[in-house]
Every structure is written in structure tokens, then in C-alpha cells.
Amino acid sequence: MKYVFATFTKTGNLRYISHLDLQRAFTRLLLRTGLPIKFSEGFNPHPKLMFAQPLSLFQESVCEVAEFRFEDDCPAEAETLARLQAQSPEGMTFTKVEYSEKKLPPCKAAEYTLTFETALDVEAFQALFAGEMPVVKKTKTREETVDIAPLITEKSFAKTEKGVALRCVLPCGNEYLNPSYIEQFLGDKVTDMRVMREKLMF
């Protein structure tokens, strides 16, 4: 049995598709490939499928990683890549397939490009990220105010047609910071934020 790590994009209109819906679509994609997918044992057999880091609704990515398993007898990585690509819907392009004996390690951080629509120039915009950045984080049980400033690292700002683009690294795992908190912090200083996940770091 092998673990398969498939890297793919989720761009364009796929940003309107939730993580849960993507999981279902991905399962069907796997079944269409005819590849020797390993199914779960039990009453309702289905392919065992994991994603390195869920992506929220309205966000795009060029670096999503899915993990599933093959039975022993499986084709070369390049063929698997081609067969996945042949079944992929609009907005999904497979860029890499790797086999492994071990499970996917946990994802530590992710790099993003956040494109803001704002009337502010780069300097004024950048200044907003200089001090504390308190936001209200809601969990299932409670609400708490957290300073997200220390979580946003390797920042670089650039001017765009309608505002500013921010390239940065945000933590995954227990410390996971959804880019939407940055939009929340900025409030009415921005009219829109587009999220592109550029790289996952393991």
C-alpha cells in the first residue's frame, strides 16, 4: 500500500465551492480515473481521502495537496498524474504526484497573496500592519480577542490596479490563521479581498 500525494489548483469558480463539496467531487474524480484506489473497510466502503489544509469558501489556491492510498499494484507517478488530470473539472489542474510509504506530515504554514481593493496607497496600507491587530475570534464555545499581528510573517506589499497586494506567510495547524481575519481587522478600509494560497509548508 502506498500513500499518494497529489498537488492541484483550486482556482476560478472553484472558489465558490466549499471544502466539503470539494471532498465529494474529489472522491468522484478518483473513482472516474479507474486507478487502484484503496477503499476503507467496513459497511460503507469509500476511498480514504485527506487534504493537507482545508481551503475556505471564496479562496483560491495553486498548491492544494490531497492524500489518498493505492493498492500495491499501481502505475508510475507520471501516469497517475495524467489520469487525474484527464478527469479534473474546470479550475482544477494537477501539478504533481508523489508516492510515499508514510502519511503526509502536518502542514505548518501557508504562503498567500492577498489582493485588496482599497483607496489607500501602499504606505498607508502597510502602516495598518505595524502595530497590534486585534480581532475577535469565534470558536464553537467562546469568543476571544486575539492580536493577529505576530502571526503574519514575511510580509511584502505591492501596488496593484485597484489597491494593494500583500504576500505573507500565515500559520497552519493549531495556530491556523484564516486570511479572512485580516479582512475583518481592516474593516471598511478595504472593499474586497481576494485570497490566493501560493504554497504549503510542511
Partner: peptide, 20 residues
């Protein structure tokens, strides 16, 4: 895009399904 941000299930309104 700016409409879809404010609706409950934007996936209803964008098409792009496989086999379309």
C-alpha cells in the same frame, strides 16, 4: 463576484460543473 460574496450558497450560481 461582488454579489456572490453575499449569498448563502454561491456554488448555485456559477456553473462550471464537470460534463457541462
Amino acid at each position: 463576484a461582488h454579489l456572490l460574496k453575499h449569498v448563502e450558497k454561491p456554488g448555485r450560481y456559477v456553473g462550471g460543473e464537470l460534463n457541462s
